[in-house]
Design a protein around this nucleic acid. Sequence first.
RNA 1: CGGGGCGUAGCGUAGCCCGGUUAUCGCGCCUGGUUUGGGACCAGGAGGUCGCAAGUUCGAAUCUUGCCAUCCCGACCA
Length: 492
Amino acid sequence: MSKEITSRATDYSQWYNDLVLKSGLADYSAVRGCMVIKPYGYTLWENMRDVLDKKFKETGHVNAYFPLFIPKSLFEAEEKNAEGFAKECAIVTHYRLKNDPSKPGKLMVDPEAKLEEELIVRPTSEAIIWNTYKTWIQSYRDLPLLINQWANVVRWEMRTRLFLRTAEFLWQEGHTAHATKQEAVEETEKMLDVYAEFVENYMAVPVIKGLKTANERFAGAEETYCIEAMMQDGKALQAGTSHFLGQNFAKAFNVQFLNKENKQEFVWATSWGVSTRLIGALIMAHSDDQGLILPPKIAPLQLVIVPIYKGEESKAVIDAKAHQIMQDCKRLGISVKYDNHDNTRPGWKFAEYELKGVPVRLAMGMRDLEQNVVEVARRDTKEKQTMSLDNVAESIQSLLEDIQQNMYNKALAFRNERITKADTWEEFMQLLDGKGGFIAAHWNGKPETEEKIKEMSKATIRCIPLNNKQEQGKCILTGEESSQRVLFARAY
RNA sequence: CGGGGCGUAGCGUAGCCCGGUUAUCGCGCCUGGUUUGGGACCAGGAGGUCGCAAGUUCGAAUCUUGCCAUCCCGACCA
């Protein structure tokens, strides 16, 4: 089987596609722009989901589920939001098929079964959720309302990319209602911190927290907070967003409550989400030409044991030792697989588990057992070492922690090297076309300038970092006065 | 939606320009055997509407037309 993957340097897109397809994370599907997430990829998503879900609950949220379909009239209630998504909606117009009289054995849409009102397949759930919240919220005592849902959404994108942009994707979307503006803003910032903490500490991908400019803001939001990550090709990726929605949705759906002074007020809202796109970020931030490199904390499989044997006798001896190690590892909460299948040889297995990004591999033969040692290979650095079999599970546990930290440090160093200041347009373009990465540059704050820069350079303002340093300077394009640098980059 | 590419076995492909036996090769799969410290080897075997439709022709994977699917680049976007 050809499992060779294209080199990063040759063709970054092809390298990425090869990684996703050949590592067993996902497949193309029969539906254009959609993707099949295979068990290995789905387990990864489940691991990520479990960590996030726990964090949401720790911060007072509960899960619920709202319908996939949104009646058009509800969808269009918040005008900016509707307009923002209008161009990428899948729409249900009929509810029945019938036999096609002109083509035996074929079906056709029954024109008699036209829906009175079209249903929009949710591209995001604000509309249906706020229409529901309206009936749940009457008093300040009903607030805050802190709900999350794990769901799929559909955005009919013109161009798709595995994990990064598929027509249907899995995500979580939190939707909260608050009595005061301040509380809602705090919620927005709190959830951004939850995301940043997760992406950095679990995915080992450093992020920059910041605010979106008006151009890049979520349709219907007052303020969009985001975390921005850096991929190995120097392009940025938005890894998560948290929106302060003001009273926009409350007004559109008439969600009011009686405050302590017995006065009607509109609630203040937030929404926040991360998606399976994070898996794309994970792949592009860490992997190499041998395959995926997955951070131990969320890897579907943390340890694989490969036996090397000659004949049934030695196999039995190694099997016994391997099972013992497995028991010890499982006791420490390490996910482990013993691959003693006879249909592939050790070399094949080594390459296969490297492709799949398993953080640690043990290779164990009679030669090792006789000396009470085992060969340990770590995926991140590809280093091999010989380790004593005494307390091997504990050694592996600390090695996993070391790998997690090392991956983060490496990604952080890479990212930090790629934040560069530019003070002239020439410098700016030169950096974009060469080194890539984030470019810290002055901007006059005007949307039309941002738009012009985007047209000329294909770079967008990724964010205005939180707690940004104030510094006088001149706009990179117009030369007008500016009080701070913002981060530009070409992005996914 | 614009530009480009591709469609031949589960996967990857040759053949197409210049039509002509039984459609090429590799991987994978099945059977048997030898192997096993970085993607094993030998022998035998199974597997095909050549994307679909129409046309040209004695004859089409190959030429013509239409359609479908898909990938890449761009606009759009998480």
